[in-house]
Structures are given as structure tokens and as C-alpha cells.
């Protein structure tokens, strides 16, 4: 039994298809759903956490169906939404105790101490949250989520708005939880973080999975080197053996090649011949950004849907 299983999971907001026949299974790993704003990440998480009813398809968490066994699903998961919601007039301990009581955790006081200790908040536990930094507030939310020892943890953009050090710390905590056997489902639009810290990533675009695998596997689908060129003027795809086009982002075009050093001059010549001016070229190893560019191309935020329906959707689901 996989911790998270979805089959043809679909959600429409009026005419806008936010998630389109998503089939996925996640088990005992850190899984990142990667994608730009508006690609359907949050909608997927809302359906998996029983906060939104799927239009079509099915999903289960720890073997419990999200539509029919909502309460069992909610018992086995914890969800930390994107917007940091902690009561600033309460202390750290009170905030965590509140969740422990709602979950009905036995020996609540001890569990609260433990969760605070895991998140390294013990020495500040009795201070009001208004004195906490952004990173501490995020860790406090994790402590709230951990207090009932869930099997599956959903984190929606866990590092958004945090500085580099705080981000790293959050990810170290997430890795530690994973080692204890928890399944962690993260959404993010930071490719570098997914690359560095996640076991497996799914790139989602327009509600569909465009690429799925470990970061290493995905990068290996490209050749060994990536060449990025800044070009001006007419751009035509150069036809050179051993050079594959990855994608274009404004005036930057990317290619992937087996041997970058040798391909550089060939590519420069070919681009010049096709009629454009090459301003600069760089050679580097592939990153998830390149995988993303190849998988989905340049992404735009969804548009062309009816505003009234969007309003109704917002009303239903904040």
C-alpha cells in the first residue's frame, strides 16, 4: 500500500481545468511537486488533504479514500499550508498544545515538549509568537504538524519567503523526518531546493505531470552538458549533429550536448549562419531548470477563464 495514490485525479474551476487526470503514487520519500504559479500544485494538495472535492478520479492517503473516508485520511496526515497561520498572541507552547488537544494526542504535554525540541524551539517555547522570526514561525508550524506523529506530511511551499539559512534549516528538518519513515509531499517552485533535497520530483504543468523521476534521472535525460546562448534577432533552430534543443526563455536559448567544449564553436557558427547575433554563451552541467524548460517550455500563468467563475471559486476555496 502506497502512502499516497491518485488515479485520474481531476479538478475543474468552472471552465478552467486546474488538475488534469493526475495519476501518481508516492511512498516513504520526499516527493516534490514542481511547477510555476497556477500549475495546479496547491489544488492537488487541497484534494489530497480533503479540503477540496475532486471533479473526477480518485485518490487515497494511507489506503483511505479522500472522498469516502475523510476523517481517516485527516487522522493520518498533517497539512501545513502556504500562508503562515500561527496565533501571534499565543506562545509557541500554547500554539502546539492547541493542535495536540485538537488531535486528541495522549500525554499531550510531553508530546508538545518533544515536538518543540525536535524543531529546536524549546528555549523560546514560552515567548509570544509575535517575537518569532519567519523561520521560527515556519518551524513552529512544523511542530504543530508533527505533534500527532502523522504518517504523511503535506507541505505547501514550505520555504517561501524565508532567507537562505532558514530554508536550509527547514529542509534539514524535513530530511530528518523522512529518515524516521514519514512520507513527505512538498510543493515548491524552487527547482534548486527540489534538486538538492527531494528523493523524487514530478514536474506539473497545466495540471498534468510533464516529467517524473529522481532529480538525477531527470537530469540524465539531457546530455552531459548544457549550453545557453544569449541571442538577438531572427532565431532559427541550427541543425548540427549531436546538439539537441532544450528550450527558449526570452532571449536565451538552451541546448544539450555530450561534449560541451567541442560543441561550443560549432554551435556559435551555426547560430551566426542562421542569421542571429550571439551576445554570449555559457557552458554548464544540467539543472532541473533545464529539465523543466524541456518538459514544459516557457510557462505562462493561466488566463482566458471567466472572472465571475474565478470569484465563485475563490469564495468556495480560500
Amino acid at each position: 500500500m502506497n502512502a499516497i495514490e491518485t488515479t485520474d485525479l481531476t479538478r475543474y474551476y468552472g471552465v478552467l481545468c486546474a488538475v488534469n487526470h493526475l495519476t501518481l503514487s508516492v511512498n516513504n520519500e520526499i516527493f516534490a511537486l514542481l511547477g510555476p504559479n497556477g500549475s495546479g500544485k496547491t489544488t492537488t494538495v487541497l484534494m489530497l488533504t480533503t479540503l477540496l472535492t475532486p471533479t473526477e478520479g480518485s485518490a487515497s492517503v494511507c489506503g483511505h479514500d479522500v472522498m469516502r473516508e475523510g476523517e481517516m485520511v485527516r487522522k493520518s496526515l498533517s497539512y501545513v499550508p502556504q500562508d503562515m497561520a500561527v496565533d501571534i498572541k499565543l506562545t509557541g507552547r500554547e500554539n502546539v498544545r492547541f493542535f495536540a488537544d485538537l488531535y486528541g494526542v495522549p500525554h499531550a504535554a510531553d508530546r508538545v515538549d518533544e515536538a518543540l525540541a525536535v524543531m529546536e524551539l524549546s528555549d523560546r517555547a514560552d515567548d509570544l509568537i509575535r517575537t518569532y522570526s519567519g523561520g521560527m514561525r515556519r518551524r513552529l508550524e512544523l511542530a504543530q504538524a508533527l505533534v500527532h506523529e502523522p504518517s504523511v506530511l503535506f507541505l505547501d511551499e514550505p520555504t517561501i519567503g524565508l532567507d537562505v539559512a532558514a530554508r536550509k534549516r527547514i529542509w534539514e528538518h524535513i530530511r530528518a523526518l523522512r529518515k524516521k519513515g514519514m512520507t513527505i509531499f512538498v510543493t515548491t517552485h524552487y527547482m534548486d531546493e527540489a534538486d538538492q533535497f527531494c528523493d523524487r520530483v514530478g514536474i506539473i504543468s497545466r495540471g498534468q505531470i510533464a516529467a517524473l523521476g529522481t532529480p538525477a534521472e531527470l537530469k540524465a535525460r539531457l546530455m552531459k552538458d548544457v549550453i545557453t546562448a544569449k541571442v538577438e534577432g531572427m532565431f532559427a533552430l541550427p541543425d548540427v549533429d549531436g546538439i539537441a534543443f532544450v528550450g527558449r526563455n526570452d532571449d536565451e536559448v538552451s541546448f544539450t550536448v555530450e561534449n560541451g567544449r567541442e560543441a561550443l564553436p560549432l554551435l556559435a557558427d551555426a547560430l551566426k549562419k542562421s542569421g542571429c547575433i550571439v551576445r554570449s554563451m555559457s557552458l554548464r552541467e544540467p539543472t532541473l531548470d533545464d529539465v523543466f524548460l524541456q518538459a514544459v517550455g516557457r510557462q505562462e500563468e493561466p488566463h482566458g477563464f471567466e472572472f465571475d467563475k474565478f470569484r465563485i471559486m475563490l469564495r468556495r476555496r480560500k
Binding site: 485527516r74 499550508p81 500562508d83 503562515m84 497561520a85 503535506f154 480560500k318
Partner: peptide, 15 residues
């Protein structure tokens, strides 16, 4: 509670 995101956290609880 709804605007600030608390409601979503509460709704994901077994309570």
C-alpha cells in the same frame, strides 16, 4: 480565520 489560513489548517484536522 478563513482569510489568514487558519481555517484550512483546522479543516485538515480529524476534529
Amino acid at each position: 480565520d478563513k482569510i489568514l489560513g487558519f481555517l484550512n489548517k483546522f479543516l485538515a484536522l480529524p476534529t
